[in-house]
Amino acid sequence: MRFHRPALCLALLTAGLLMSAPAKADLRMCNTTGSRIGVAIGYRDAQGWVTEGWWNLSPRGCETLLRGTLAARFYYVYALDYDKGGEWTGKSVMCTRNKEFTIRGIEDCLARGFDRSGFFEVDTGEQKSWTIQLTDNNTPAAPRP
């Protein structure tokens, strides 16, 4: 995973919601930075690859990206820091665009009129629910119960 702004790093310490009390089964993203963040996700469903964006997360805010029990083990994330610049990126290239989108397929992005962005992989360990935390410091965030 590459990060293009030296002051930021990614903390992917996450936790499935394993408490005995009933919990919503969702894919959530928490922004622990002081900046506004834009988030796009990629995943594989029954019909193939899908990328979706943009969720706008306020500083220190959380959003539900996908509702319900997670259907895949791996999800992919690309995020932009709107206030300070920089991005959280990885090696998995998928299609995006500048405005709200849902794109089927990850091939021929440019030929189809989309941008190509590098997404980082999130391994949920086949949990039913998962929270991803983006941070801007060098110490990982604690897992979320």
Rank of each mutant, 00 (worst) to 15 (best):
F3H: 11
R112L: 09
C95A: 12
A141Y: 06
I132F: 02
E100N: 11
P59T: 04
R5N: 12
G113Q: 10
D136A: 05
T102M: 11
I41R: 08
D26H: 01
W54Y: 07
N31H: 11
S117C: 01
S129K: 03
G48P: 02
I103W: 11
A25M: 07
V39C: 06
N31Q: 12
T135C: 04
T32S: 14
L134I: 03
K84Q: 12
V122E: 02
N98V: 11
V39W: 02
L66Q: 12
S92N: 15
D81A: 07
K91H: 12
E107F: 13
R116E: 13
T32R: 13
L66F: 07
L80K: 06
G34E: 11
T124M: 07
F114V: 07
L17I: 09
G53L: 05
G68H: 01
Y75E: 09
I103V: 14
T124E: 08
R28A: 12
N56D: 13
L12M: 11
V93N: 13
C109A: 10
Y78C: 06
A142D: 10
A46I: 12
I106W: 13
K99S: 14
Y75G: 06
K84Y: 01
N31K: 05
F114K: 11
R28Q: 14
R144D: 04
K91Y: 10
F119L: 00
K84I: 01
Q47V: 14
L18N: 15
S92G: 08
L18K: 14
G53R: 02
L27T: 09
G42A: 04
F120G: 04
F119I: 03
D115G: 09
A79H: 03
Y78V: 00
C109I: 10
W130G: 02
W130S: 07
R104D: 12
C9S: 15
M19T: 15
C95R: 11
D136I: 01
G85A: 00
P143E: 07
R112D: 07
P140N: 12
V93F: 05
E63H: 11
G42S: 00
R36P: 08
R112I: 02
R144F: 12
C109F: 09
R73E: 12
P22C: 07
V93P: 06
T131E: 07
D81Y: 00
P140S: 05
F3G: 09
D45Y: 08
P22K: 01
C62T: 01
P140C: 10
